[in-house]
Write a protein that binds this DNA or RNA. Structure first.
Lengths: 408, 408
DNA sequence: GGGATATTGTTCGCAACTCAAACAATACCG
DNA sequence: CGGTATTGTTTGAGTTGCGAACAATATCCC
């Protein structure tokens, strides 16, 4: 029961019906390819005649193509339709404190090349270096493709509309118009987004249908900090200033440890990688300044190492993980009570120890969830091996092709 | 950039364009009445010819009617169009721990009659009594109207789809199929909703355009507990189990006072009426059981009395309000960081002392808000005199007439 | 007072769209 | 090789938005 926005509505034009149906057809092909026109008509519950025209238009737009003919028990064999993805390329960039990851992939998310290197913190140098790497990456490809843009994600707050980085404390970047700079250096369209929200986008737009667990979910990325992306009605929640989704900075205890955001007792100070390592090494969080903590993080010992020790039987490591897991669960319970999503996705170093921490997480959720049904909210761990941030960066460029037309 | 839901999409039919445009026209008339066809055409940026037909259909559906002719500096005078509301009635019911409020109003929200009485906690008696009161209320009205349904709101969790009350601890109601019972007793359609979410609906669908401060906001109702309703993209966030929006139970401190929900340290234990009164009287919250607190609430001394004493110079009362205000602000800051709404609406007894507590609230927000822009999120206090819960209950029945058709 | 002008609301031909049904093109089966 | 089932196209009908012409007012101004 949505209210029509009187200040920003979209009247149906002569072509609106077809625009809508063409996009539905495109998305159905994307989801069920290879698929025939007749099958499309059945799924859409419209006549084959209309589907014929829709498909003809999609082919003319070079969004899909006809493939081989399929098999049928009786009657004429169907001609399969496919999404044209292999020659539409995207450059995805994931800037983190430790390293910068660079991926070239096609519109389906198929990985063509991937590389990583030490992050360059000076903005002009970063741009120059990145533009060079992108050119090199594309030169290596065969001819006959188009690169449709660069998707870039950073840990921090981003105004997605203008492409400006508002504040990325981990990188020390503040008020940087990265889109304009990078677009000027490469001549390509650039989209910028917060890394956790990009993960949510990756999940939403992932082509593998199995993952389509509803259009309402929250994505939680636990790493240096805790980032979250909220998807409601198949749309990423961006908010007035494009900074929505910062569950990481909800207070678990207003008198808790100091956080990089300036406040104290944020959820991320209890469950981030830093928090877990601090527990293990016995650092006193409340007395350390955020700056010092950044140095600590530079150290070579990571949560992955801690997990390895835990698996080796290190009791202190296990205890540190369990405590972080408990706080992780408390935060998840709160998210469930607030958003009541269809599911919650998790990623980050600590999730590699999911078998060790799942019980603690679920117990904490059960402790605070308001209904029994809420405790059964599905939790899905996505491996960091799948590069969720990079896939989200790619989705920034690829997704608009498939997005629903704005209407009413 | 919304993704089309492949499992639940709506193809555009032959009549879809007109359905969309008719609803847009209807909403524009609702917002700008009285309005002429020509003015509608200008606002919608479609030809007057189409508007003529749309209007003709809306008149045939008895959703609008032609009124007087207006004035024009030159040329033919316009015929004004109006929404038909005066003879479409709604019964709104607000069940609270202390009292039950009953209102008869028309589709515009115009109040025709209002009454309140001691809440009856026995379900069969409650239904019987309410059905009797509704019949009496309608009998008093003149003929020539239709009552289109009953909207009922309760403090607690409600499955809006099935009309079942899942758990309303304040009333001691649990798993009650109130819709079926009440519909059977009255023969009218019944819609049930959580009271804070109903307030959000009231705000969203309020006819007075001045309040239309965007289609993304959070409504916070501070009373016995703290209820919240989240509106995203002009739609109330209901969640998988229809229990979304429970900001009241986010933990401010996991070791805090015991809450009625079973957990401890929930936001509402720090800023609800009960919390404020407890501070004033020096009750030890953490040691009292929720049951005992309910008794305390039965006492005749309310937050309104406390506010009166504060205005009279009672230092302890002022201090209690200030502390609650600080925690209110901390919670609001968290909501802002998570949802980043266009605005936040507040109601409840404590907001009658807004002039006394605003500074403390804003200071707490500034303390935890992640950006400077976020601290400037507009806060709007809605008076309890306007019966926001009853208006929300009425919106449950009236709003579907105006809601956007589902498409794509 | 009466034509010029301006505005509202209706009508009509045209183009775009969905829809149902007929039709052509395959392919399998007995 | 005809019967049948299925895919994909075509065609005519009904619905809709669009543009332009038209009728119905009303004011302005000579």
């Amino acid at each position: 029961m949505r209210k029509i926005n009187i200040r920003d509505f979209h009247v149906a034009r002569r072509t609106t019906s077809r625009d809508i149906n063409r996009h539905i057809a495109l998305n159905l092909i994307r989801e069920h390819q290879p698929i025939s026109r007749a099958d499309l008509a059945r799924r859409m519950k419209i006549t084959r005649g209309v589907v014929s025209v829709l498909v003809q238009e999609l082919i003319a737009q070079e969004l899909i193509y006809e493939g081989a003919t399929g098999e049928a028990a009786r009657g004429r064999k169907p001609t399969f339709l496919h999404i044209r993805t292999h020659d539409r390329l995207v450059v995805a960039v994931d800037v983190r404190f430790t390293k910068t990851y660079l991926m070239l992939c096609d519109f389906s998310g198929r990985e063509l090349a991937i590389e990583s290197y030490e992050t360059v913190f000076s903005i002009p140098e970063f741009i120059k270096d990145l533009a060079w790497r992108v050119r090199k990456l594309l030169k290596r490809q065969e001819q006959g493709f188009t690169c449709e843009g660069i998707g870039l994600v950073v840990p921090g707050m981003v105004d997605q509309r203008t492409g400006k980085i508002l504040n990325a404390p981990a990188l020390g970047w503040r008020s940087v118009d990265i889109r304009t700079k990078l677009a000027a250096a490469t001549g390509m369209p650039v989209h910028v987004e917060n890394s956790a929200r990009a993960c949510a986008l990756a999940q939403l737009w992932s082509e593998r249908g199995e993952a389509t667990g509803g259009h309402n979910f929250v994505y939680i990325s636990v790493s240096d900090g805790v980032g979250t992306g909220i998807v409601v009605n198949g749309e990423l929640l961006r908010g007035r200033d494009h900074i929505a989704g910062e569950f990481g900075h909800m207070p678990l205890n207003p008198d808790g440890p100091l956080c990089m955001c300036g406040a104290s007792g944020c959820w991320e100070t209890y469950t981030s990688n830093l928090a877990t390592l601090s527990r293990y090494f016995g650092w006193n969080l409340s007395k350390r300044s955020p700056k010092r903590l950044k140095d600590a993080e530079r150290s070579s010992f990571t949560v992955l190492d801690l997990v390895a020790r835990a698996r080796g039987g290190d009791a202190k490591a296990i205890a540190a993980l369990q405590t972080s897991a408990r706080f992780l669960g408390l935060g998840i319970a709160t998210i469930i009570n607030i958003i009541n999503p269809d599911g919650i996705y998790l990623t980050g170093e600590i999730t590699t120890a999911w078998d060790l921490i799942e019980d603690a997480v679920r117990q904490a959720i059960a402790e605070r969830a308001l209904t029994e049904a809420a405790t059964r909210t599905p939790l899905r761990v996505t491996s960091t091996q799948e590069y969720p941030r990079l896939r989200g960066a790619a989705a920034l460029i690829a997704a608009p092709t498939f997005a629903a037309p704005r209407v009413a």
